[in-house]
């Protein structure tokens, strides 16, 4: 007789499956990253190459680009699973939805958040970010991008059953990203001025903890509505 899967096994199976699927279609991993790079290079072209201006707006540009590329990559989080029916199977399975949702969001973050964090120092170089702000930038991205994946997943779960969900998704999600944007850029600016920024990081961490605990429930409820 089959042993029922433990929570940990469920979690790792879903996670590995999502990673494997993404590795097979490499575009899924690289397109958001390329988008991130292109958006950031557009800003100096649009604003002008003066170093001072770029230095001042670099934190904002990097974070807005991160928001947009997260948004762009979100749609595929549940889309394929929804259209081939495996999402419904997940909802029907005896394992708690919380864990599976969690694994999927983590997979999304590994595939889109981590590449952005890795590419950010290079792009910050292009934008001539203050040298002492690099640590703050990496820290805010490391704490902030998981929040983007978690909150974004709520929006995707709500819109997955809708035909043209793309624009709608951005309308639903971007306003909810505002606190992360504000505190993250605030931290980077504080670091650039040589001020302490641990307070900002603490707030972002608090937002992350809040999102970690509450978002999976919202995602689960939204998925149940969408697959109805």
């Amino acid at each position: 007789m089959n042993q029922p899967l433990s929570y940990w096994q469920t979690f790792s199976i879903v996670l590995m499956r999502d990673l494997k699927v993404a590795v097979r279609n490499k575009g899924d991993v690289f397109n958001p990253l390329i988008f991130f790079v292109i958006v950031i290079t557009l800003f100096p072209l649009g604003i002008g190459p003066e170093g001072n201006t770029l230095t001042r707006i670099a934190p904002g540009i990097i974070w807005v680009a991160a928001l947009l590329s997260a948004l762009l990559s979100l749609e595929r989080l549940f889309k394929n699973d929804y259209s081939d029916g495996s999402l419904e199977q997940m909802l029907l399975s005896p394992q708690p939805l919380f864990i599976m949702v969690f694994a999927k969001v983590l997979a999304h973050w590994i595939l889109t958040g981590i590449p952005i964090i890795l590419a950010a120092p290079l792009l910050a170089l292009l934008l001539q970010l203050e040298t002492n702000a690099y640590g703050a930038m990496l820290a805010t991205l490391a704490l902030g991008t998981p929040i983007l994946s978690l909150i974004g997943a709520i929006g995707v779960a709500l819109t997955v059953g809708i035909k043209k969900g793309g624009v709608l998704l951005s309308l639903l999600i971007l306003p909810l990203y505002i606190p992360v944007l504000i505190f993250a850029t605030g931290a980077i600016e504080a670091a650039a001025l040589g001020l302490p920024y641990s307070g900002h990081l603490a707030i972002i961490a608090a937002l992350l903890v809040g999102a970690l605990t509450l978002a999976p429930f919202a995602i689960g409820a939204a998925l149940r509505v969408s697959t109805n």
Partner: peptide, 14 residues
């Protein structure tokens, strides 16, 4: 309704 509740959690933070 779900979106409204997500929003209401976020409003004080925003």
């Amino acid at each position: 309704g779900i979106l409204t509740l997500v929003g209401v959690v976020n409003i004080p933070i925003i």
